[in-house]
Design a binder for these strands. Structure first.
Lengths: 118, 118
DNA sequence: CCGTATCCGTTCCGATACTG
DNA sequence: CAGTATCGGAACGGATACGG
């Protein structure tokens, strides 16, 4: 882990930027169980603005993590789905969430201790 | 992964915020092989400003991921080290970096394809 | 040596209104 | 239904100067 290549814009940084983005993680997890339409995503993800939803979806699509399928019907219908690459991310995110749930009590305890000795 | 508790300030979000922070990851990885002093950290991490270094270290310390040991000598000497909790993060981060290295070429290809059809 | 304090440009993002 | 466009407040973070 020592002298790793961790420049700006290295692979690791780019992934971390995406993972660190709340909306990206929420979208990927929401799509875990199946395709969703734009409005369905908006409903599942609390308080996401259209701006951020679109912007994040474009980013995920650009990175090959999500596909966007437009059906030529009226009213318009657009489905979003995870790619194989996107699904492979689910395992990582799951691991993170597991770690978080396992260790959150320790973290909270540490914070309490830290804050109380100021 | 479906109806997971993902409110603002839930455990998962808090971890993701920390992981998504470039400086936090850099510091944790830098401490993987042993304790370091403030200045040593500053030297290893390219271009980190004193402000961000201190701020990030305080956050990591508060969360119980890093310890800060002040030696009562002149000139002052302050050592930073990972806690057991901090070391347990290394595995997660390693997994993320592995995924990133494995899949970066696919991501870059996807981006190229996306950008070229605009 | 190990920080803290301040200024200030930039970027982010929520709210809102509007369109094909 | 599925977005786009625009504005403005807030927050992030770099540079810099200084203090114990």
């Amino acid at each position: 882990m020592e002298p790793f290549a961790y420049e700006k814009d290295c692979p690791g940084r780019q992934l971390l930027d995406r993972i660190g983005d709340a909306w990206s993680v929420l979208i990927v997890c929401s799509l875990a169980d199946g395709d969703l339409r734009y409005t369905e995503l908006a409903q599942r993800i609390p308080a996401v603005s259209p701006k951020m939803l679109t912007q994040t979806l474009r980013g995920l699509e650009r990175d090959g993590l999500v596909t966007r399928t437009v059906h030529a019907v009226v009213p318009p219908r657009v489905d979003y789905a995870l790619t194989a690459l996107g699904r492979s991310l689910l395992g990582l995110v799951g691991g993170l969430l597991d770690w978080a749930e396992t260790n959150i009590t320790d973290v909270l305890k540490a914070r309490e201790a830290y804050d109380s000795r100021i």
